[in-house]
Amino acid sequence: MTMLPPPSPRKLGLVIDLDTCVGCHACAVACKEWNDGGQFGPLPDEDAYGAEPLGVWFNRIHSFEVKPRRDATGNGPLQELAKTGFAENAPAMTVHFPRSCLHCETPDCVTVCPTGASYKRAEDGIVLVDEDKCIGCKLCSWACPYGAREYSEKRGVMQKCTLCVDRIYNESFAESERQPACVMACPTRARHFGDLGDADSAVAKLVAERGGVALMPELGYAPVNRYLPPRPRRAGCDGTPAVSADESLDRSQLSPLLRWVDKLLSR
């Protein structure tokens, strides 16, 4: 049934910290591994070891370069930047950006589905594909702004992030392991799983505290997942570069031994 269920109070989703994500792809690999063998697998690749490997991944890690915005005279919007603590003369920063299904509240990927294969669960808002009903028309992937759905050429059906629905309710796991594989795998704890519909949940508090944002809200899909923006860079806080350009050496700071070595080497 591809009509959307009435809005549920429970909105399970992910909160991704763009400040601490180091772009290691461990979440993507853990996701591929779990879901290849999980209830919604397998995730076979075409030409896996050949020249052009191609296959379904539910999670993709981009890297973006962010440059402080400057106008024609070389000045940035200072007030705006002050909020982020990002100094005007700061160098560009790299932001690693995991991209997966955002389990939107009003997802068109569900309503465009002609067969009822694509659905949003009424009880927790997870968006899933019933692979036994999918005809592989690919329309849902066209309807998703976030590129969350990938078509499996090998299986002839659409596949997508399941929020590890086969882990999070799995009673054969210890309570601490009832989390999506990507969250379990993250070495920097940049991924958090929880109920974003509950204002008292740890993830909702984290979003409130860090000013978590929704992606492309202007498209009206009302994504549930939130991204936590990078924290202010230390070097940028007072505008003083951490390393000065000419790298002059202050000998008075050195220990007597190093001062002697410096003297020796400077001859």
Binding site: G23, E52, S63, F64, V66, T84, G147, L215, P229
Partner: peptide
């Protein structure tokens, strides 16, 4: 808006998640 990083400045793609094509 796609990355939610508008407040930080101008964003550009630096490195793709994969070296080959994918379905998307």
């Amino acid at each position: 808006s796609a990355t939610g990083l508008a407040a930080f400045g101008s964003v550009s793609a630096f490195e793709h998640p994969h070296t080959e094509q994918n379905y998307i």
